[in-house]
Design a protein around this nucleic acid. Sequence first.
DNA 1: CAGTGGTCTAGACCACGAG
DNA 2: TCGTGGTCTAGACCACTGA
Lengths: 258, 258
Amino acid sequence: MKMYLTYAKVVIIMFNGIDKSSPVPVYYQIKKEIEDRINNGSFKPMEKIPSEDSLADVFNVSRMTIRKAIDKLVDQGLLIRKHGAGTFVSKSNYIFKNDLSKLTSSTKEMNEYGRQIKTEVLEKEIVNATKEIANILDIKEGDKVFKYVRLRFINKTPFYLETSYLHFDKCLQLIKEDIAGSVFDILENKYGIKIHDATASIEAVRANGLVSDILNVSEGAPILKIKQTTFTCEGEPVQYAVIISRSDKYKYHIHRRK
Amino acid sequence: MKMYLTYAKVVIIMFNGIDKSSPVPVYYQIKKEIEDRINNGSFKPMEKIPSEDSLADVFNVSRMTIRKAIDKLVDQGLLIRKHGAGTFVSKSNYIFKNDLSKLTSSTKEMNEYGRQIKTEVLEKEIVNATKEIANILDIKEGDKVFKYVRLRFINKTPFYLETSYLHFDKCLQLIKEDIAGSVFDILENKYGIKIHDATASIEAVRANGLVSDILNVSEGAPILKIKQTTFTCEGEPVQYAVIISRSDKYKYHIHRRK
DNA sequence: CAGTGGTCTAGACCACGAG
DNA sequence: TCGTGGTCTAGACCACTGA
């Protein structure tokens, strides 16, 4: 018992307190606390973190709350639970650039690269949905959709070509917007359309005439083609995008779990 | 109150009972129950499922248990929670073939295609780790590693070429095994090595001479190249694999979340 | 064996959404 | 306003791991 109290004391020194009256959920504050300890190295890779019981004592919350915080970190791959043994910091905690499993605004994704990314809007128009587009967006062939084409450059080298179609009435207004920045931002903050998730397929294709011209690669060069349908929180398809990128300039990463 | 009871009764008819004495966790049984209802269509897309309170009544468990079941389904993207409104079946519930975010034995993945998949082992040997391999596997250059190369055919068409390196002492025994089947199975069930997760990068490359010969594509054809490092539950790198596949025959899909 | 995570309960109060 | 999900508690028993 004495040992236990001593341990708890040590841990108390290591953590900042949490604010139970804050609107931020307690489990989330605790998650951040543990995350910080991992990132600043006070919990080292492979190291065992304090038990759930002792953390519950330290933070003065119930064990279920601690579990929720740890659950999230396990989901993120930062912690690993071992039944009967303890919870450990995972050896490999990577930073994923262009993590395919995470849906972020491509503009925001790019911003992490710094200022050397430029976006050019090549096309912006209202068109009639082809059969393929209509099928994907769950509308009728010939219905009006807003189409845009954007090209991204890294240090003046074009590497990322996006062709997008959106069919919501509100989205037709996009034609009047500046879409060199984040389209997701406009949808969410200006139009109140909440983006939830997306499904994508990925394949390797040959750059054909037009694409090889635009991306400045030789005819027939291998490029990545991602077809992505984005859905709202209501589960409605809101956008269909075809993204073609030079994989010599822009690589995708992914974390696979069992 | 009467309304409520009536509703609960209706729900009771729709669900099979659960077995609390079963070693299978209750939340998991309930998750399966709900999943079944979604898959067989008795919960339709966009439809609201019963509230957590009423499900707790129906299954005669606490609400936290119901929440855990629903949490898992939300994670899977099958359900969508809306604070204050209810929980809904997502509109788009896809079946992901070759889901990149899920780490499964490639052999098992293939089996879903049925009997037309054949695997041929092209190489099986102990080699010295190159600098690159050693770096990735966290060993020293020149250390012994087990290398294997496998080629997969769909209807006699080659489409998937895998080159793998494993460095664990136990893994060197693989040279004596039949590895036309699942290597993961051997690692887990025979050697007791538990696979936890993997990191992968994906890019489009040109098929060079040897690869284009093996995969039977024209010289310079675009193919997908996935580099994947697999980790144990202890966070140690156990395998490095380079997978080259014809994306005309084998497409990868992915679910992206915010 | 003791310590740990895995599951579960029966409550509670709050914040949000829609009518 | 009322039903809903979001969070949280203070216990409990079990299964697993490691010494």
